[in-house]
Amino acid sequence: MSSQPTTILIVDDEPQIRKFLRISLAAQGYTVLEGANGEHGLAQAALGKPDLVVLDLGLPDMDGQQVLRELRAWSSVPVLVLSVRASEGEKVLALDGGANDYVTKPFGIQEFLARVRVLLRQSLVAEQLESSRSIGPLTVDFAYRRVLLDGAEVALTRKEYAVLEQLARHAGRVVTQQQLLKDIWGPTHTEDTHYLRVVVGHLRQKLADDPASPRFIVTEAGVGYRLKGA
């Protein structure tokens, strides 16, 4: 997250709220994505790989609590609920459902921005402190740049390790092909998807991972890849 612009996704059906938040967040240097309903918001969360999601609960196509549940099924991205619903029950339901913070409308923009900064800071610290990630018999050791499968070290090339590390750091979340290519091969290679397919193919062979019934690396067709959650 530290090497890329910080991206915030706003999921809210009110255009004026989205515009207000977009201007306020952009003024702080954030990249802003928008979703006008739950379905669009979930798609943006998968494709845009945001560092934070601002989620309204009163969406036209599905309740925001449902959006939160679906998002948490595959993503650990921090979520700040921003809603007119002020009851304790709604707040508890959202927080128990995986929201990281809850702000009621109407709200003060300075407090909102402060809460955004806190969540982003907490997320960055947690990412930096994490020294390894294990998914069943697979362990990716970030500190020593080693990969273990059933306790035995797996020899990977630099590119293979870089792809696996990216997927492991975002385990359970979709990482887009374009993001992997940009981060690992560079910004001029975002369309060179064949490079990525070759590396992922080699990774699967070395990890004895059947793409038809994957234990580890799941292909999200047309989008990217996801390492199964821990």
Rank of each mutant, 00 (worst) to 15 (best):
L33V: 12
E34P: 05
G35S: 10
G35V: 04
A36W: 07
A36D: 14
A36Y: 08
A36Q: 15
A36N: 11
A36M: 11
N37F: 06
N37R: 14
N37W: 04
G38D: 03
G38Q: 05
G38L: 08
E39C: 02
E39K: 14
H40K: 13
H40D: 15
G41Q: 12
G41L: 13
G41C: 12
G41F: 07
L42G: 10
L42Y: 13
L42F: 11
L42C: 13
A43G: 13
A43N: 14
A43R: 14
A43T: 15
Q44I: 13
Q44W: 10
A45Y: 13
A45N: 15
A46R: 14
L47F: 15
L47T: 15
G48C: 14
G48V: 11
K49P: 00
K49G: 12
P50D: 10
P50C: 13
D51N: 15
D51Y: 07
D51T: 08
L52F: 04
L52R: 06
L52A: 10
V53E: 05
V54Q: 00
V54W: 01
V54I: 15
L55A: 05
L55C: 04
L55Q: 03
D56M: 03
D56Q: 02
L57K: 10
L57R: 09
L57S: 13
G58K: 13
G58R: 13
G58I: 10
L59N: 00
L59A: 04
P60W: 03
P60I: 02
D61S: 11
D61N: 12
M62G: 08
M62D: 03
M62Y: 06
D63W: 06
D63M: 05
D63N: 15
D63V: 09
D63T: 11
Q65G: 10
V67C: 07
V67G: 01
V67S: 01
L68Q: 02
L68R: 03
L68N: 01
R69K: 13
R69F: 08
R69D: 05
E70Q: 15
E70P: 01
E70H: 11
E70C: 05
L71A: 11
L71M: 14
R72V: 04
R72K: 13
R72F: 12
A73Q: 14
A73K: 13
A73P: 00
A73F: 05
W74G: 14
W74K: 14
S75R: 04
S75F: 03
S75H: 00
S75Y: 05
S76C: 08
S76P: 03
V77M: 01
V77D: 00
P78M: 00
P78S: 00
P78K: 00
V79F: 02
V79H: 01
V79I: 10
V79W: 00
V79N: 00
L80V: 09
L80H: 07
V81G: 01
L82V: 02
L82F: 08
L82E: 00
L82C: 03
S83R: 05
V84W: 08
V84I: 09
V84E: 11
